[in-house]
Write a protein that binds this DNA or RNA. Structure first.
Length: 110
DNA sequence: GAATTGACGTTCT
DNA sequence: AAGAACGCCAATT
């Protein structure tokens, strides 16, 4: 487990309930704005680490990673359970629910 | 070890 | 405005 992995876990673990963020935003917050792909990969590796990976979607608010859940509908169900409305595999009010780690996490970091 | 393939996103045509 | 190309890099074949 390298630094990047931990950073990603750190960020994802801090996403508030009922909020969502994107792969790109996370990558960018870590200075790897071109490696957004890796974020998904890392989550995949750490899926069993108890991370709220369901709060991470692509930049359109689309639940592209639901296929990697077991069952695939788990992602959508969990989000709904947290009060996040989902339709056609995409987050409703995504813009408003978006949680930018580069900004929000910085506040916590203090 | 080369080629392919992604939980992505930006840029160039 | 829609589609192709590319950057990035770990894992799989």
């Amino acid at each position: 487990m390298n630094t990047f992995d931990r950073q990603v876990c750190e960020v994802v673990a801090h996403i508030p309930e009922g909020r969502v963020t994107t792969y790109g935003a996370i990558a960018k917050a870590l200075g790897k704005d071109r490696s957004s792909r890796m974020v998904g990969w890392i989550l995949n590796r750490q899926l069993a680490a108890g991370l709220p990976a369901h709060r991470v979607v692509n930049r359109n608010g689309l639940l592209t990673g639901r296929i990697h859940f077991d069952p695939p509908s788990a992602m959508e169900d969990r989000l709904k359970a947290e009060g996040v409305q989902v339709q056609q595999n995409k987050v409703v009010r995504f813009q408003e629910l978006f949680w930018d780690p580069a900004v929000e996490l910085l506040k916590e970091w203090k």
